[in-house]
Nucleic acid binder design. Structure first.
Length: 280
DNA sequence: ACCCATGTTTACCC
DNA sequence: TGGGTAAACATGGG
């Protein structure tokens, strides 16, 4: 579910709901959710105030007083909700933050893939997941020249490379299929065979697509909701993802679904052709 | 019953 | 050592 636009939508919702709140107590119902010692996590966060919520790639960064940061990754199905303490607790709720005003910030995750970790603010950049992240997908940080140079060194297909978060951060399976379709690039194209023109088109499409998806509140395919338990609207704007056997919106050819790098991959066999060799 | 699923980390290989 | 790839994580839905 959550790729960058969904994580950003969650961040904005939480920012409105719980900013400035003091943590009265933390309950951890599924300790594996916490990287490190869950008791330590609970003890250190108690009585701290949430000052800011930031985001890096698909990671949420909860900034607390005393230089503490909770790094949270929602992975496939993680969600944050804000509930009254008296509301019934869902069976997939794994962490509960009691707020001083009587409400609770609850972390819910059907598949239990998500993780949360308490670190000293600033040191999150050294965590394995964050250390190798590429630039945020905005014009200020994501530069074509750098993107193209890195593509020249990658020995992978473009879809797998875009999913690994090192060229640029934030794309997941849905948006990768979308930006490759928009750019008329076959998902199995070798990175090294992309031209500077193709890299430029792809770069621009990545920036605009993710910005549009944020504006729409993200994409809900099966279960994504934001902090208000509201679904996104971008699923209505998808061009290829999930459109297997439906006509390509550009040329009418049936959209195909194949597997690339273990991931279901949608593309138009007419608009997106593999570059198999260079003819000089 | 079997296969699939929006993501990352780990183990293993070259 | 660095890069690439497949399995692992855990659960629900079609």
């Amino acid at each position: 579910m959550p790729e960058l636009p969904e994580v950003e939508t969650v961040r904005r919702g939480l920012q409105k709901l719980v900013l400035g709140q003091k943590i009265a107590r933390v309950e951890v119902l599924y300790p594996k959710m916490i990287v490190g010692d869950a008791d330590d996590f609970k003890a250190k966060l108690t009585e701290q105030t949430l000052e800011k919520i930031e985001r890096r790639g698909k990671y949420l960064l909860f900034r607390f007083t005393n230089g503490l940061t909770v790094v949270s990754h929602l992975r496939m199905e993680g969600k944050f909700y804000v509930k009254e303490a008296t509301d019934p607790v869902d069976k997939h709720t794994h962490v509960i933050f009691d707020l001083a005003d009587g409400r609770q910030l609850r972390y819910n995750d059907v598949r239990k893939f998500g993780r949360m970790q308490l670190v000293q603010t600033g040191s999150e950049e050294k965590l394995p997941g964050l250390a190798k992240l590429g630039p945020e997908p905005v014009a200020e940080t994501f530069k074509v020249a750098d993107f193209y140079q890195k593509l020249q060194k990658k020995k992978k297909n473009i879809k797998t490379a875009l999913l690994d978060q090192t060229l640029v951060t934030g794309l997941g399976n849905i948006y990768v299929d979308e930006v490759l379709w928009q750019s008329k690039i076959h998902p199995e194209t070798s990175c090294q065979k992309l031209t500077l023109d193709q890299a430029t088109i792809l770069h621009d499409n990545i920036i605009t697509e993710l910005a549009k998806a944020i504006k729409a509140g993200g994409t809900t395919i099966r279960s994504y909701t934001d902090a208000f338990q509201k679904t996104g609207a971008f699923q209505f704007e998808l061009d290829v993802y999930g459109r297997t056997d439906e006509p390509c919106k550009r040329c009418g050819t049936k959209i195909q679904k194949i597997v690339v790098g273990q991931r279901g991959t949608h593309f138009c066999p007419h608009c997106q052709q593999v570059v198999k060799c260079h003819i000089f």
